[in-house]
């Protein structure tokens, strides 16, 4: 889990507004190769927005974002090619509703990487096996449980051999008994050295696998610390209040 020195993702002085709302305020964040960064903070603090700017699902107003030292492409083929290198897992899974599980996983490799069909399918089956849903390969997404769908979504991202992965509250839409099956897959990925940015409120996950916790509130990064330090000795009042509220009643 050793994070090397090269920052694979760099955000410098990033600002973004939605109309009057200043959702990202002077964000500076480096993510190193092999690092797992957990983003945490109250609802509406801008975690999703930050996460989505990294693969340019959201544009930024000012500042810069670099990936492997280069500014993100702004549009067209270059942007698509860049996004192919970054996996993204959404809260609501977003599996392609009209395609089988297998086709969900092979679509990217076949259309973007031009992998031959048989190779793509073989690899997809291995990935589905790995996340434990190989038996469902020929079903459609609506026939799977939430936990299974999310594991397929992870497999779909992995099929593109991403250099980094973004997770936006991957377990928030899941029933409690399905959360662990998804977290297990993510823990495994982290062990293998995947670079990950994870928006989550799962404290156990954060403690177990993250290298760093980034606490956001009102569009700002308020605190950055190792998980133990953050959860045991939060520095700001905002963070203390937040932790009290999620540890709960």
């Amino acid at each position: 889990m050793a994070a090397s020195d090269t920052a694979i993702i760099q955000m410098h002085h990033v600002d973004k507004h939605y109309g009057q709302l200043h959702v990202l305020q002077d964000i500076n964040l480096d993510v190193h190769k092999g690092e797992v960064v957990v983003l945490i903070g109250p609802s509406g603090s801008g975690k999703s927005t930050l996460c989505r700017t990294i693969n340019r699902l959201e544009t930024i107003d000012s500042g810069e974002i670099l990936f492997e030292g280069k500014p993100l492409p702004q549009e067209g083929k270059e942007l698509a090619a860049y996004r192919a290198e970054i996996g993204m897992v959404f809260q609501s899974f977003n599996l392609f509703a009209h395609k089988s599980i297998l086709d969900n996983v092979t679509l990217g490799p076949r259309e973007v990487l031009k992998t031959p069909k048989d190779v793509a399918e073989k690899e997809a089956m291995e990935l589905l096996e790995r996340v434990g849903v190989a038996e469902q390969a020929h079903k459609v997404p609506a026939q799977l449980s939430g936990g299974q769908q999310q594991r397929v979504a992870i497999a779909r991202s992995l099929a593109m051999h991403p250099k980094a992965m973004l997770f936006d509250e991957p377990t928030s839409a899941l029933d409690p008994e399905m959360i662990n099956e998804v977290l297990e897959v993510m823990v495994e990925l982290a062990r293998e050295g995947m670079t990950m940015v994870v928006v989550t409120h799962e404290m156990n996950f954060a403690r177990r696998v993250s290298n760093r916790v980034v606490f956001m509130a009102d569009g700002q990064i308020m605190e950055e610390a190792s998980p133990d330090e953050f959860f045991d000795h939060p520095k700001t009042d905002r963070a203390k209040d937040f932790l009290d509220s999620i540890r709960g009643h």
Partner: peptide
């Protein structure tokens, strides 16, 4: 749903492919 397009973008599909492979097939149904 917008999420379908975002998922397609995130695996690197270009605009044309998103329209033809993801959006239109679902819209037609």
């Amino acid at each position: 749903p917008k999420g379908q397009v975002e998922a397609a973008m995130s695996i690197g599909l270009t605009h044309g492919k998103i329209v033809w492979k993801i959006v239109l097939p679902q819209a037609l149904r």
